[in-house]
Design a protein around this nucleic acid. Structure first.
Length: 219
DNA sequence: AGTACCCTCGGTTTTACGTCA
DNA sequence: TCTGACGTAAAACCGAGGGTA
């Protein structure tokens, strides 16, 4: 178990709002038991009542862990630092902790959580993108199937499309949907010798994280 | 190869705080 | 206006796994 902050309610500082500025700086807290000092900082002016020092004394041995909210200024500096580097080496961590009057462990945990939030956000964006992509592919699929129906209905000889490679007409009957990537391919075994010919139906992928998830050409 | 130490990560718990009935 | 339930964000913790000396 790590050292737990031993604090009273007066430890509460502020809600952390990234990107905000100016708030009183904090006096130093020691590395180990340093939180008793922090209560002097109380920027929220939370009445500290009678509970001086440590009010902990939990029933099950260790003191209950209390959290402090980082001040706006602390959050701002941490964010700023995170923008420059998503990870810290021990020296940077120590320096930042000193600057912010936090324990190195707190800085470490903040970066850890910040990386996790960052990743979560990225994942959510990718998910959103894939949903849209799926929607557009579904729509495209619907359109193409309609088109095939129409061509079949016309019955004016074997329907044809142009090969993207040779510009020669291909029988539409050679078109099929790849079950894996849902792309339309022409499976003609003709002279092209490069196997199934992929038509250009996939949307442009901007996200680098997503580019690797594009169905492979081998599909 | 085995070990100790450190770091990061994913998952979880705990706490603070805002909202709403 | 007060209050308690509830949801959410974030700080803190834990254990696993990888890298290095």
């Amino acid at each position: 178990m790590a050292v737990l902050p031993r604090s009273s309610s007066s430890l509460e500082l502020t809600i952390s709002v990234p990107g905000f500025s100016s708030s009183p700086s904090l006096p130093s807290s020691g590395d180990q038991g340093g939180f008793a000092i922090l209560k002097d900082l109380d920027i929220n002016q939370v009445p500290s009542g009678g509970e001086e020092e440590d009010e902990e004394e939990s029933s099950n041995g260790g003191p209950p862990r209390k959290k402090l909210r980082l001040s706006k200024e602390q959050s701002r500096l941490l964010e700023e630092s995170f923008r420059q580097n998503h990870t810290l080496n021990p020296k940077q961590k120590e320096a930042l902790a000193t600057q912010l009057q936090l324990r190195p462990r707190q800085v470490e945990v903040w970066f850890q959580n910040r990386r996790a939030r960052s990743k979560l956000k990225q994942t959510e964006m990718e998910c959103e993108y894939l949903k849209r992509w799926f929607g557009s592919l579904t729509e495209q699929n619907r359109r193409l199937q309609r088109e095939v129906e129409e061509l079949r209905a016309m019955k004016v000889g074997p329907p044809t499309v142009l090969s993207p490679h040779s510009s020669h007409p291909l029988p539409a009957s050679t078109l099929s949907m790849c079950p894996r990537c849902e792309r339309v391919t022409s499976t003609t075994a003709a002279a092209d010798n490069s196997g199934p010919t992929r038509t250009t139906l996939s949307p442009k992928v901007d996200s680098p994280a997503l580019q690797s998830r594009q169905p492979s050409a081998a599909c």
